[in-house]
Simulated scan of single mutants.
Amino acid sequence: MSRTLRLAGTAGAFVAAGTVATLLNGRSRGRRRRRRGEDVEFGSVRSDGTTIVSADGVPLHVEVDEAERKTPTVVFLHGWVENIDVWHYQRLAMRGAVRMVFVDLRSHGRSGRATSKKSTFAELADDVTAVIDQLIPRGPIVLVGHSMGGMTIMQLAGTRPELFGGRVRGVVLLGTSAGRLMRGEGSPGLRYLIPLLRAGAPALDWGRRFNSYSVIRRWGLGPDAHERHVDMANEMILEAPTHVLTDFYPNFVGLDLTAGLAAIGRARTVVMGGTADLLTPVKHSRRLAEAIPGAELIELDGVGHMLMFEQHEAVTRAIEGVLAEVREGMA
């Protein structure tokens, strides 16, 4: 049997399993959502949105939480298959104390879709530049990025190093990496797999819901994560269509963002990682902290990839600490 047929059979089995399980999985999600007992419903923390048009014409959904004190501005950049709801806890904790800008990265959340060829870190960095130019034309900035959002910050530092230490005074990198994430992905199999996934995206959108909660608990969060936080991550990730997976995946093959790390060191930088993170293992956070001059490393024991949920108070404290130092430097 050819490699293409084997891959097609695997994808077909996945979809078939998803078809059988969809109804039961939906009922389970409903029960978990009712059990969450949220003081503020996940996904409800919003402000009036605005649209920023990127350099290549992609409309970007951006929300701004204003504050009496206008500077610095904190810009939040989420990860792959996430959206601005990932900052649920940080947004609630910091609202009114600082001006915050939340960006749905291209093809994610409420932003417009980019083509697969325009789903690269170069375009993501250009999008951040457009947001800064149009919404934060003056004053100091703190950039906060999770996973792919952190990689976007590194790309920006590589292409626009003059921003760091100037406009960008603070950086917080959460569960992210500058490279060496994947090994062996240059094999011929991927050349078959990615086109197959793209062709089957509508069916896979349905099929990947099969047992998604268990998959996300296993790979996305730590072993002791609260059910509420697993469910929040599951709900958010399932909102991302399969084309987001396939269009952005090639960025992680041969990833190397080390060129911008020295520039990031001109800003006050905190790197935070979870010791139970299976997607961006904590060794990547350690490498970043070693490579970025003056960076502080914070390790969260037993925490997985979704540290903004699992240890939201620690993440908020880290952002607030960088913010306080930036403000001291402005005095």
Rank of each mutant, 00 (worst) to 15 (best):
R3C: 02
T4I: 02
G9P: 05
A16I: 04
T19W: 06
V20E: 10
V20Q: 09
A21Q: 12
A21S: 10
R34Q: 14
F42G: 13
S44P: 11
G57Q: 12
L60N: 06
V64G: 15
V64R: 13
D65V: 10
E66R: 12
R69M: 03
K70G: 09
V75D: 09
W80M: 14
V81N: 07
E82L: 10
N83Y: 04
R95V: 12
A97R: 08
V101M: 08
L105Y: 01
L105G: 13
H108V: 00
R110A: 12
K117V: 06
T120N: 09
F121H: 13
D127A: 09
V128S: 10
T129S: 15
A130N: 06
Q134D: 14
I136F: 02
P137R: 00
G139E: 13
V144T: 08
V144F: 13
H146N: 09
I153M: 12
I153R: 06
L156N: 07
T159Q: 10
T159R: 14
F164C: 15
R169V: 00
L174S: 05
S177G: 02
L181E: 01
M182A: 05
G184T: 05
G184Q: 03
S187T: 02
L190V: 03
P195Q: 00
L204K: 00
F210T: 03
N211K: 06
I216F: 04
W219Y: 08
L221S: 00
H226P: 01
R228C: 11
V230Y: 05
D231C: 07
A240K: 01
D247E: 13
Y249A: 00
V253G: 06
L261F: 11
A263E: 15
R266D: 13
M272P: 10
G273L: 11
A276N: 08
V282S: 12
K283E: 15
A291P: 14
I292W: 03
A295M: 04
E296Q: 10
E296H: 13
L300K: 01
Q311G: 01
T316F: 11
G321T: 03
G321C: 08
E325Y: 12
G329V: 01
